[in-house]
């Protein structure tokens, strides 16, 4: 997909909405006109997807696929260069006892840690560097600050930018502001892919999640991402389901494929496999690829590695057999 400039994004949005001027009332009536989400049905569907039984060989495939889709994340105030480079080393060699283990898709860090991550990962490792930007996690800053934040991360070598939307503006109905901010950030991203964090835990309803997804896609986001991981609830299955429906319908409508990234709260292999089942059944096989689907997680990787060891050795494994990535006091 080509990177839309401001005018591209605006004119495409006007075409889709069928209006001559992209005003807030126009955006508002289009988003409010989207079909509502059946909350009970959506949750029941998500619950039923969690009951699928995935057996040996499929499970092996699913575990390796899930590892390859992880954005290995550390977003703490206490992050140090040592911790970030440790995480990158883990991304390069997730299980030193088994070199056939796939690498995660990316490491996700704060913007100022991008140079450290870039240096440790080097070029050609296949592991991308993703940076959160735009006053993550609250998004409460002026547009100028948000754009500077983004430009800083991109110039430091980030391949992907995870931005947060202005939830205050969204919830007060000021869709035009949210739209413009995404368009502006996308322009500053240049070649970097843009993930738009909706922070679904603050959007309250599934209807809002659907509207925010459409708004992000309309503005040219390459990914819609559920959460920052700083707000509970984070990536629930029903919310991800709504977003997967949105990207599927968006491709029908415009021919443009957009990725999905649930982030936060996905800790076990079983959870991850349930998400993969959901991707396959809702969006389709085209999304079962690290380019189009990611997990924002940190502890998930260790659980997947334990499962992988269990399948390789035939014996249950333990925490002593995977790298401990909890903050060290030493």
């Amino acid at each position: 997909m080509s990177t839309p400039t401001e005018t591209d994004a605006e004119s495409r949005a006007r075409d889709i909405l069928g209006v001559s001027r992209l005003t807030n009332p126009a955006l508002s009536s289009w988003l409010q006109g989207l079909p509502g989400v059946d909350q009970v049905g959506c949750e029941a569907r998500a619950a039923s997807l969690g009951t699928r039984s995935v057996k040996t060989t499929s499970k092996e495939w699913a575990i390796d696929t899930a590892i390859g889709m992880i954005d290995l994340t550390t977003l703490e105030g206490a992050d140090t260069p040592g911790r970030v480079s440790g995480l990158c080393t883990k991304a390069l060699s997730p299980d030193p006892t088994d070199l056939s283990t796939p690498r995660p898709a990316a490491v996700c860090v704060y913007g100022d840690m991008v140079p450290v991550a870039r240096q440790t990962l080097g070029d050609g490792s296949g592991v991308k560097v993703a940076a959160v930007a735009t006053a993550f996690p609250s998004g409460r800053a002026s547009l100028a600050v948000k754009l500077a934040d983004t430009a800083d991360a991109v110039s430091a070598g980030a391949d992907e930018i995870d931005m947060v939307i202005d939830r205050g503006a969204f919830l007060s109905g000021d869709y035009r502001t949210v739209f413009e901010q995404i368009v502006e950030v996308k322009r500053v991203c240049g070649g970097a892919r843009l993930k738009v964090i909706l922070e679904t835990g603050e959007l309250v309803t599934y209807d809002n999640v659907r509207r925010a997804s459409y708004l992000a896609m309309l503005a040219g986001g390459d990914f819609v991402k559920t959460s920052t991981g700083k707000v509970q609830p984070a990536a629930t299955l029903p919310v991800t389901l709504v977003m997967l429906e949105a990207v599927r319908d968006w491709r029908e409508l415009t021919g443009v494929q957009v990725g999905v990234k649930p982030a936060g709260g996905i800790r076990t292999s079983k959870d991850a496999i349930t998400f993969l089942v959901t991707v396959n059944e809702i969006a389709g096989e085209d999304w079962l690829d690290p380019f189009w689907f990611r997990f924002g997680a940190s502890s998930l990787l260790n659980d997947l590695l334990l499962q992988r060891q269990r399948m390789r050795t035939g014996a249950y494994s333990g925490a002593d057999y995977v790298a401990d990535d909890s903050p060290s006091l030493y």
Binding site: G314, A315, Y316, S317, G318, A319, D320, Y321
Partner: peptide, 8 residues
């Protein structure tokens, strides 16, 4: 399974 369990 318990005998071979690496976390036992």
């Amino acid at each position: 399974w318990l005998a071979s369990h690496r976390d036992v």
